[in-house]
Write a protein that binds this DNA or RNA. Structure first.
Lengths: 188, 188
DNA sequence: GTCTATATCTCGATAGAC
DNA sequence: GTCTATCGAGATATAGAC
């Protein structure tokens, strides 16, 4: 990806998050990225293509980050905990990107992502949980239900921790406590 | 609210959910509602006013439904369970409306709702949880954290249960099981 | 690849008759 | 209150020079 492409994605992220897909004309994205309107459409044939490219870019970054943080040497509980904790750290350190993921998710653009790609995004998490069920460390629930319980707690906790009133220096303790509660709920 | 107003809100809901705020022109809303463009703007001065009125209308309906379902005679656990279960029933029976709430939540329109109104929406739930903490039935966690744990599980479970592949006749059993897990996590 | 200039279109909102 | 007709603004996307 060349530099101008990155600038366009960065500008698009900021503006989409601040003003929504609707409230953000391509002309403003180009202006904030410091490129011309024509250049934007050179890289992305349509506005929707840009919206989707931004989503895929962010998803790829999150996925790479989690892969780097969650190694394969630890116990299953530790790997699950790392996955939980680092998802939250990433979200809190990349709030615009995390918000964009959710904004995208509740928009008609989501329908443009193929089901296979969607499935691929949670595959690694599902495998981890499946391993836990088979090792009889986790309750024998449907693996998708376990995934729902874990990931919804990540999303909810993010809302709680990112509230302006919440003191940043207490984040880590709450995250640890929340994982302990979660683990108590899903462990066999 | 007069009949045409209801028709406009109904049409707006269907179209916003299907095509997003962006993809839904007021002209299409008016057409689907069977009224003229001018009539729509007679009831709602701007498109945004319509978007917000629809949100408040849906929120009011959900709130009224839950108040009717969760009486004051039951034990705290029962009231919490009823609140959890009926939130899910309502969401599953009113999927467009529930989706709209979330779509609105992840849009810049949310900023147009005053913090007092937002706070009012969760007040009754927070009171219930506070009562549980004081009666030493629930863990002595911050009440907002407890609320986060409960409500995020509602949202997550909704996604799980509303998936097209999920058999409708198994919904109730999963909801009961999920509440049991949740209760185990938050009870003292 | 990047720019300027612009075509084409559609949208939100208004005016005014009934 | 409801309609028809329409305006002006601003949107996406393209054309073509450099």
């Amino acid at each position: 990806m060349v530099e101008k492409e990155k600038q366009i994605l960065t500008a698009a992220l900021q503006l989409f998050v601040a003003y929504g897909f609707h409230g953000t004309p391509t002309s403003k994205i180009a202006a904030q990225a410091g490129v011309s309107n024509g250049t934007l459409f050179h890289y992305y044939k349509t506005k929707e293509e840009l919206v989707i490219a931004l989503y895929n870019d962010i998803k790829g970054e999150l996925s790479a980050y989690l892969s780097a943080q969650v190694g394969g040497q630890d116990s299953l509980e530790t790997r699950l905990k790392k996955s939980f904790i680092h998802s939250l750290y990433w979200a809190l350190d990349n709030q615009e990107k995390f918000y964009y993921i959710q904004q995208f998710h509740f928009s008609p653009h989501l329908a443009k992502i193929s089901p296979e790609v969607i499935a691929g995004q949670s595959r690694v998490h599902l495998q981890l949980l499946q391993e836990g069920i088979e090792a009889e460390l986790l309750k024998p629930l449907p693996v998708e239900l376990l995934f729902t319980l874990v990931s919804s707690q990540v999303y909810g906790l993010y809302q709680y921790l990112s509230a302006p009133a919440f003191p940043i220096d207490q984040r880590q303790a709450v995250i640890e406590e929340a994982f302990a509660l979660l683990w108590g709920m899903i462990k066999k």
